[in-house]
């Protein structure tokens, strides 16, 4: 209910800006025009949203699995942790967007480079946040493991994992917001389908209303993903 009110207020503000400044539709189309474009191009938008959605979901699943696996591996092996952790920290400084042209060059114009891009964008923050959670278990609790002479994997399963689940939830929620960015940037650089492709094409043809319509779909998709990840996060926080 509050969301609808917020949406209506946003639409009213948007309309007011157009009326007051008199910007032409090819710069900023009115909400009604965008809604009309959404409706008339619905089949095309749905088709391309399905492509982007698939890239995002696959990238999210693969990236999360790899991120969780890497964090668990590093939590289990102090040696692996010493070797990989600096790399993980350093990788945060790499602007993954800058890799998009390279990925397209190597992997072509299909969906693969977009998925890889999403995987990269999901993997690093998730692995980093989850590993921090796994390693941040209070010493006193680890003492319980030592007193029981528990092997590393039991400490992981019974002490570290339960304590790190909230950070896993937080990591997944953040990853869900970033994941669509990866796919869309991949599509901007070079694609034949997807919402990012629709946006660049519409932009080139000055179909600003279609561009905005694609943006609306993308935002809705991201919000849905964020909501789902938020629910999962709440479950993990228990």
């Amino acid at each position: 209910m509050r969301g609808i009110a917020l949406l209506a207020a946003f639409g009213a503000l948007w309309q007011a800006v157009i009326v007051l400044t008199g910007v032409p539709p090819f710069i900023l189309p009115a909400p009604a025009r965008v809604l009309a474009a959404l409706w008339s191009a619905r089949a095309m938008l749905a088709e391309n949203a399905a492509v982007t959605g698939m890239e995002v979901l696959l990238g999210m699943v693969i990236g999360s699995a790899l991120g969780i696996g890497a964090a668990v591996g590093m939590a289990l092996s102090p040696w692996l942790c010493r070797v990989l952790r600096p790399a993980l920290v350093a990788s945060q400084a790499v602007p993954v967007f800058a890799l998009a042209p390279v990925l397209t060059l190597w992997l072509g114009f299909g969906t693969l480079p977009k998925i890889v891009m999403t995987v990269l964008i999901v993997f690093f923050p998730l692995a980093s946040v989850f590993l921090d959670g796994l390693l941040a278990v209070p010493e006193g609790m680890l003492d319980l493991g030592r007193l029981a002479r528990a092997p590393g994997w039991r400490v992981l399963v019974f002490l570290r994992l339960p304590m790190a689940l909230p950070s896993l939830g937080a990591g997944l929620t953040v990853a869900a917001v970033y994941a669509p960015i990866g796919a869309v940037i991949g599509e901007w650089v070079g694609a034949a389908q997807g919402l990012g492709y629709v946006m660049t094409m519409a932009n080139a043809r000055s179909q600003t209303d279609v561009m905005f319509a694609a943006l609306v779909v993308l935002v809705a998709m991201t919000l849905a993903l964020h909501w789902a990840a938020g629910r999962l996060g709440a479950m993990l926080r228990g």
């Binding site: 209070p138 006193g140 609790m141 003492d143 319980l144 493991g145 007193l147 029981a148 002479r149 528990a150 039991r154 400490v155 019974f158 002490l159 339960p162 304590m163 689940l165 228990g238």
Partner: peptide
């Protein structure tokens, strides 16, 4: 048997599961 100043209970486990933690850690 070890008791510290902090209770060192796992926040997501029930009291019962916390009591049996040692057995699970030992397998």
């Amino acid at each position: 048997a070890y008791l510290a100043q902090e209770d060192l209970l796992l926040p997501r486990l029930s009291a019962l599961a916390n009591v049996t933690l040692g057995a699970r850690l030992r397998g």
